[in-house]
Computed example of a mutant assay.
Amino acid sequence: MPSAAKNLTRRALRITQTAAYPLYLFALRADEVLQIADISRVSRDEAGNLIGYQRPEVRRHVEEIAQYLNTDSAVFPNPIIVALSSRARFQSSRGPGAGDGLATAGNLIIPLPAPGKPKPAWIVDGQQRALAMARTERRDYPVPVTAFVADSVNLQRDQFLRVNNTRPLPRGLVTELLPEVDSPLPPRLAIRRAPSALCDVLNTDKNSPMHGLIKRASTSRGGTTRAVITDTVVVEMIQESLTQSSGCLFPYRDMSRNETDFDGVLHALFTYWTAVRDTFPDAWGKHPSKSRLMHGAGIRAMGRLMDRVLGSVDPRLPNAGNLIRQHLALVAPHCHWTSGVWEELGLRWNEVENLHKHIQELSSYLIRVYLNARAELS
């Protein structure tokens, strides 16, 4: 692109699926894609708010695409999907052949960014391809592009999740983005939205026993971090308790109105997991390689024990914390989070893995010890 140009003009088709968000089909040269479009990396700002939505670059994948594009026989039919700023303009062509009732031909005028200024587009799908385009030797390689106008990051996230719903996105990335999407989602994703939002509060609220301990897709890969618990494990723990009738969090849901008492759920989670932290201080907050309590199997098993304990102790009671600690004290002597052997399981403490079999066996053991100890007291 000439540096003196203020706009990039491309022949395009406009398809109006909804008046609010027109859709454009056009082509760019390989070296133009990242000149007009940014990649919105998922991260957190200083206030802890979620920004962006894209996963990190997969270097090997990018290199493989670039190598393929350098070949003479490269065919790349999959379009890159971008969200365009509302500053982009479309001028319809004149004449009877400009439209057929489905699409309208014309020119799409995209303003070029001044140095240091935001670009007019964001990549919603195809970031690895876009990165490869920027590195290919074939700078003029034509790239198909599908674009919709959206200044809202929420709409961009919504489209990002829908486009990637059937692809192998990292589960942690999908999990963290779900609470930020306001529009209706497919049932498979919608059922995880509330647990993910609760997981987020557990991680960001300074009064939470898990504050700063949960690893999310936006967790910084560099520097020091306290995060040791995988977020998907916490989400699964909450989801299981919320959706199963035997779960202690299930009563907080109003099935007829499809509503959840979030404050009540958070209070129950804060109260129980604070008691867990206080009961096992030497195992709390450590890396899973040093404490299986912080491991997927430990969180899931203690979550299932939570369903039993909070089935007996109302977390809304003024002394609920002390009562829960008394109940957890019944199983504490039988736990081997950081050393020793789970003899009943036939496993050393660090041989417990985040496998369905191990989660089931560990959960059953803790619940059995708890129920037997309570029966002896009574």
Rank of each mutant, 00 (worst) to 15 (best):
T260E: 08
L371S: 10
Q244G: 07
P186Y: 11
E32G: 12
D100Q: 06
Y272R: 04
H356M: 10
V62F: 06
P179W: 03
A12H: 04
G97H: 07
G172R: 11
N165R: 14
G298L: 04
G247T: 01
D125P: 08
G101M: 14
L177G: 04
S256M: 06
L173D: 05
T146I: 15
G116S: 09
T224F: 15
V265A: 13
M306I: 02
I214C: 07
H334L: 06
S256K: 14
S241I: 10
M1E: 10
F160E: 01
L371T: 15
L108I: 04
R41Q: 14
W337L: 09
R135F: 00
H356Y: 10
L213W: 03
D282I: 02
D261E: 09
N354H: 13
S220P: 03
A194Y: 08
L84A: 07
P77W: 02
Q127K: 11
G116V: 02
S363C: 08
Q239I: 03
A190V: 00
R60S: 13
I214K: 11
E259S: 07
S196D: 08
R60N: 10
R221W: 04
P186R: 12
E259K: 13
R300Y: 12
N258E: 13
L34V: 05
V228R: 04
A5Y: 04
S93V: 02
